[in-house]
Design a protein around this nucleic acid. Structure first.
Lengths: 207, 207, 207, 207
DNA sequence: TATGAATGAGGATTCATTCAT
DNA sequence: AATGAATGAATCCTCATTCAT
């Protein structure tokens, strides 16, 4: 966003270095183990087995590290979603259940990671997060559009946002011991019922 | 429930009650204006027009200030909810809509405040937040139990938690300009559909 | 020492108030229980069951409280010493043993109290302490002068100071569980041997 | 024994060894010039010509700095003691005199330094000091065991402790102008007489 | 490119002391 | 005389960031 930031980040393309990966992983680890507040750049460097100087060779500032953590998680998540083979025989709720469950499978620590990342200073971060969620919304839209069921929504964009935010809230607050399957079922139900017209013509039961 | 609950030194003169209020308000103000990270105790004192020493006369540490902010908000919120006169003629969705809308009315900044409070270090805070939500869950349970509609849920506790978390997620992420009425309608729909058995005998239209 | 100090201390004579005693006792208590550093004027006031304002009604500043604590201890100590009836039949070592033991009896916590008082800022305090020790030195001189034994010292003042300092060092470092009687015996021996000419004409054994 | 022992981050470049030394020296200087209470970490950093951040790179907290100061002094002191060539022709008192004097030579400010270090909070410090004294006790035991004179003590450990504490007390309270030679002589006499059997066969004059 | 020593502004908190009531 | 709310300088310590090697 600032001209100087771009300057600093010389090896933009070489982001795939082992060093970079080590740093991002270390940041995620520390976030999970402690707190945003306790996760200092020096500690990240230490856990990554890299000097603090090297961290600043690849990241303009601390926020960029968390950007990368978020990017990393959200791409894993989207990949997970895309990997779900959409069985046409399945009902909407079953499909959604499979999708939600895939998010857990992609990274069981995801919800906690997300909660911790939200502790970061709002300023530049909120936007980043919204982008990530927009991606997921797009994916979900694609899934829904391909479904035979007719949706009972007046504004799909609004509904998608509502749903994504709702799911995020539920994920973030899910108790650690919670059975992912139960959660996936409830979430799928929440989503399916919100989207489908209730009433006689229920798509699920043919008669 | 009351902001004066767990104070280090209970204010015995009215002068000091004003001080406590000023501190809690200032903390909330700063949280809304900036960030958790930017909200230092010294800045809180400054905005409250009080010396930093006074802050620590009434609050054992920084966290306790935010506890009070949360307590203050959550009691305003619960009071708002309780003030909604439950018109028996209303359907469930309309009732829920009124309730959700009252939360906005209680404090339009509430959602943002909540988002910022969540930036606080997890350690002792997560529990506090869960308690506040448990209170709301109890209130909601009371409302539902009194309704004529039969609920289609296997585990009401689970459902309540799911719903509260969902609503929190939606609130926290609501864009600033968003029309509260639209939001309230969608939320009410989300909740009502999740809870009620979909099917021919829809409770809304007595057929 | 400062003109303003004297001014502040209006009720110089009323130092015998119950309030004053309570404050001094509380200070000593806290010193024993914790540290000089942890013993704040506010905590003293609290333990004394008195308002902080009252503390400053009787004491110009924190140091004066400790002065009073030291005065109180040292007068108890000297009183204890004076109370020892000097049995003329006793040898020097036995007499010294009784004296040293009386110091313990006067206040078993004395040594610890002294160690803690020594943590106070040097500036104005060192002098106070030297005065207290000079008093004890004078007392000891009186005892020695009345003894039949001839002392083998070149400079009695120097020797007295050496001894008092030595005893202080031993007291201050005495482990908590230490048997006072053993300590008294060793100290008496240390003092007696230091003062008396060693050699054939030992006063203790007549033949 | 070495000041670099328990450091937070071991200095790997010579630059940083200098930093550590500067910090420890500055701390000792300030302790001597003022007080424990006036010796803040920021002032130490300033006098050391180093940033406060650097102080905390090498020392986990304020206490560790004083640990290092004490270590540094006590190792200088023990080195000084060991350097005293034990002339077999000397009597016990002369030997002790030489030893005591060497302590002064090792660092004439030692006694004052010790007094100031004792102002530190008790908690973790008392132990440290006892360890240092135990070391000196061991050294003294070694010296005594090699002497021809037979000692008149029932419990050598107790006697050693008594003596070390006595000497500490005397050192700590020695007036600044005091002639070290006089002091050394008196101390040697105190120790020698306490340890040796008084009686006809005085070791000093062979007769 | 990598290192890690150094920086110093800023943060949370304490505490002796004052003064209006 | 007593109270206790209020003060604010000062303290210890952290951490993102820089830069000489």
């Amino acid at each position: 966003m600032d001209a100087r930031k771009k300057l600093k980040r010389k090896p933009k393309q070489s982001r795939s270095t082992a060093t970079v990966t080590a740093i991002v992983d270390a940041a995620a680890q520390l976030l999970l183990r402690t707190d945003y507040q306790s996760t200092s750049t020096n500690r990240i460097a230490e856990l990554a087995g890299v000097s603090i100087g090297s961290v600043y060779q690849y990241f303009a500032d601390k926020n960029e590290i968390y950007d990368a953590v978020l990017d990393s998680y959200s791409s894993r998540l989207v990949t997970g979603l895309r990997a779900v083979t959409p069985d046409p025989a399945m009902g909407l709720q079953e499909t959604l259940e499979a999708l939600v469950f895939s998010v857990y499978s992609a990274d069981p620590d995801g919800p906690l990671l997300l909660r911790r990342i939200r502790q970061a200073p709002d300023a530049h971060f909120q936007e980043k997060l919204q982008n990530a969620k927009a991606q997921i919304a797009e994916f979900l839209r694609g899934v829904l559009i391909r479904r035979p069921e007719s949706l009972d929504v007046s504004d799909l964009n609004l509904s998608l946002r509502i749903l994504i935010d709702a799911v995020e809230g539920i994920f973030i607050n899910a108790p650690v011991g919670q059975d992912p399957r139960v959660l996936a079922r409830e979430l799928a139900r929440l989503i399916a019922r919100y989207l489908l017209a209730p009433g006689p013509a229920r798509p699920r039961t043919a008669g």
